[in-house]
Structures are given as structure tokens and as C-alpha cells.
């Protein structure tokens, strides 16, 4: 019924063929999937792009066996603490980072294969009441954690073999940081979004908190996904899980906002709203380059071109189940779409 309801929207300028199904991974264990991601993995046959699927108590690595066939090659069994998310680590190979916890992240772990005896290895990177974590370039992790009295924003540096090489702290803002994004093209700049809807900017090298800028009250609890600097302005891609529908902007899922870090003034550059007539709201999403994908409460996945503000593709709920996860692989040419039963579909975009 839901699929039929969506058909008129597909005919109204949104092309389903923008997403071509390449292959499907079907997990035989019917465990509940919590996250999916892509990772480079080097084996005897060379380096290849593999898929990582995470259930609450196990994380599996899948490698391509044929163009349309994938095989599960390794499964790490975790302990009693459930897996919450996969933490992508850019520019790394043979390394999977995961966050575990109950209501919030309590542990960050690395999963590997031992080079000595090919056994599956797990190592603990960090514990605490962790609110947000992001994998950065050059094998670093940034995390925000909270005690009753204070917040700590910490960088952890990892060796090539995944050992923790220590770290340093960044000056925390007063309010809790909920998400981070590296500023592309600026090696030492990092931004974060906070509980009171501010954007904070750090110098990663010195740990200085450089600026705090308010996003505005219309879009509470904004989450930053991507940031880049151009012509003296800081552009930030935000999602708005709690935004209210308005006449001028419809039901916004993503927004590109330009900030002048010198004056802390900002202006909205582009809205990416749900296509008119499409039921549901933004649930969760992922951004890569100028492409954004989101799971909607209706069980559909929508894809936008952030520069045009256009919804470019829509995957209606699969007849066998609703979509629950949407992640870009290492580039925005490949979308991983996951269902709660562990089925993952790879789409070429």
C-alpha cells in the first residue's frame, strides 16, 4: 500500500532510476541490524572495498565474491554491551571502529585481524559517557564525553596497526557537543554542533575554541554532517531531525548554511526538503560530497543534490520491509541501504 502511494511522487520529477540496484547482501542470521558501512580491506588478492554490517552483538565483514555476490568472511562477537554504531575511519585499511553502549556510547572499540595468527582481534580505545564520536583523517578520532561537572573533547591518535598513540584535548564549549565535522581542505579546522543549536569551530592542532555561532531557533537540534571553507565563508551541511514544516521551506531534511566566522553571522544557502506530497519526516541520514541520503519515517529513502536542493531519487519501502539505514560507501557513487532484518542493498547512484 505504501509503495502505491509513493508512485505519483516518482512520476513528478524524482527519478527512481538514479539508483540502480547492484547487489544484495542477505544475512542468514535474522539479528536486528543497527548500522552498515564500507571499509577498505587488504587481503592476499589486494585491496578491495568491503561492507561492514553491525548487529547488537556481532559485527561482520563482507567481501565481494562476484559482481553480484557477497560473502561474509569474518564475524566479531561482542560482549554484553550492545553495538550502537559503526564509526567510519577515513583513509584506513583493515580497521573497523565501533561504538557500544546502552542509551549513549560507553565504549569505542577497534576490530581487526591479527597479522600474526589471523585471529579476530578487539581493542578498547576509549570508555566514558560519550555523546559524539567522529573518525578524522590521519587515523584520529574526536569524541565528546561528559561527567557531571565538565565536558571533555578529546582527540585520540591511532597507529597503523590500530594501537592508541595517545591524544590531546580541545577546549570544550559550555554546552554538550552532539556532532562533529572536519572542515574539508583545512587540515586543522574542526566544527561541531551543540545542544543549544550552536556551531563551534576549533583549531585541532592547538586545541583552541575559535568561535561559537548560533544556527537559529527555527531549526532546533541541528546536526552537522559536512563542512568546507570557500571565499572566506564556512559552509556547513546540517540536518534537522526536529524541524517543523513551514510554508516557505516545506519539510526540510538538510540545509547548507554559510557562516562568516569573523562576525558569526550566517545565511541559509540551500534547503533540501522532502518532495511535496511525500508523507513522513526525516529520521536519519548521511552526507558525502554534494549528495545527501535520508531514511524517512515512512520507511522510504530519499536522496538529494545539496547544491541544487533537489530530491534526485527515492526508494519506496521494499515490499519485504521498510528501509532503516542509508549510508554512502567511500564515495557518493554507491549507496548502502539497509533493512532492520540485516538485508543490505548496494545501489549505484
Amino acid at each position: 500500500g505504501v509503495a502505491e502511494e509513493l508512485t505519483p511522487v516518482l512520476l513528478d520529477g524524482v527519478r527512481e532510476e538514479s539508483l540502480q540496484l547492484v547487489s544484495k547482501l542477505k544475512d542468514s542470521c535474522s539479528c536486528c541490524a543497527v548500522d552498515v558501512g564500507a571499509v577498505w580491506w587488504e587481503a592476499a588478492g589486494g585491496r578491495e572495498l568491503c561492507v561492514v554490517t553491525a548487529g547488537e552483538s556481532a559485527v561482520s565483514l563482507w567481501r565481494p565474491l562476484a559482481p553480484d555476490r557477497w560473502g561474509k568472511v569474518h564475524t566479531w562477537q561482542l560482549g554484553e554491551i550492545p553495538v550502537i554504531q559503526i564509526v567510519p575511519l577515513p583513509d584506513t585499511c583493515n580497521l573497523v571502529c565501533i561504538a557500544l553502549g546502552d542509551l549513549e556510547i560507553g565504549e569505542i572499540r577497534l576490530l581487526q585481524i591479527s597479522s600474526e595468527n589471523d585471529s579476530l582481534k578487539q581493542s578498547l580505545v576509549k570508555t566514558g559517557n560519550i555523546k559524539a564520536v567522529l573518525g578524522l583523517k590521519d587515523r584520529r578520532l574526536v569524541s565528546s564525553s561528559r561527567t557531571v561537572h565538565e565536558q571533555q573533547v578529546e582527540i585520540t591518535s591511532l597507529s597503523e596497526t590500530g594501537r592508541s598513540k595517545g591524544g590531546w584535548t580541545l577546549m570544550p564549549p559550555e554546552e554538550t557537543v552532539l556532532a562533529f565535522a572536519e572542515v574539508e581542505g583545512m587540515g586543522d579546522a574542526l566544527v561541531g554542533t551543540t545542544t543549544v543549536n550552536s556551531i563551534v569551530v576549533w583549531n585541532l592542532k592547538t586545541g583552541q575554541l575559535l568561535k561559537k555561532m548560533h544556527v537559529g531557533y527555527s531549526y532546533p537540534a541541528s546536526i552537522c554532517h559536512r563542512a568546507y571553507s570557500d571565499s572566506g565563508l564556512l559552509f556547513v551541511v546540517l540536518s534537522h531531525p526536529h524541524a517543523k514544516e513551514s510554508e516557505s521551506c516545506g519539510n526540510p531534511a538538510f540545509r547548507v548554511v554559510a557562516f562568516n566566522p569573523r562576525t558569526a553571522r550566517s545565511t541559509g544557502v540551500m534547503f533540501s526538503s522532502l518532495p511535496p506530497g511525500l508523507a513522513g519526516r526525516y529520521l536519519e541520514g548521511d552526507v558525502k560530497d554534494a549528495s545527501a541520503a535520508a531514511v524517512l519515517t515512512s520507511g522510504a529513502i530519499a536522496v538529494w543534490d545539496l547544491l541544487l536542493g533537489h530530491c534526485t531519487a527515492l526508494l519506496p519501502p521494499d515490499p519485504t520491509g521498510s528501509w532503516a539505514l542509508a549510508r554512502w560507501a567511500t564515495s557518493s557513487t554507491c549507496l548502502l541501504a539497509g533493512q532492520r532484518d540485516g538485508t543490505v542493498c548496494l545501489y549505484r547512484y
Partner: peptide, 23 residues
């Protein structure tokens, strides 16, 4: 967006803010 909306823009904002912010 125009400079009047956002105030004076600097191409070196990151270096300038790093020099001004407390260490």
C-alpha cells in the same frame, strides 16, 4: 550572499581567529 548581510569577510579567518583566541 552579500558582504553587507554577513559583515566583512576574511580569506584568512582561520589564522586570524587562531591568533586572537586564548591559547
Amino acid at each position: 550572499c552579500s558582504e553587507s548581510d554577513l559583515g566583512p569577510i576574511s580569506l584568512n579567518w582561520f589564522e586570524e581567529l587562531s591568533a586572537e583566541a586564548p591559547p
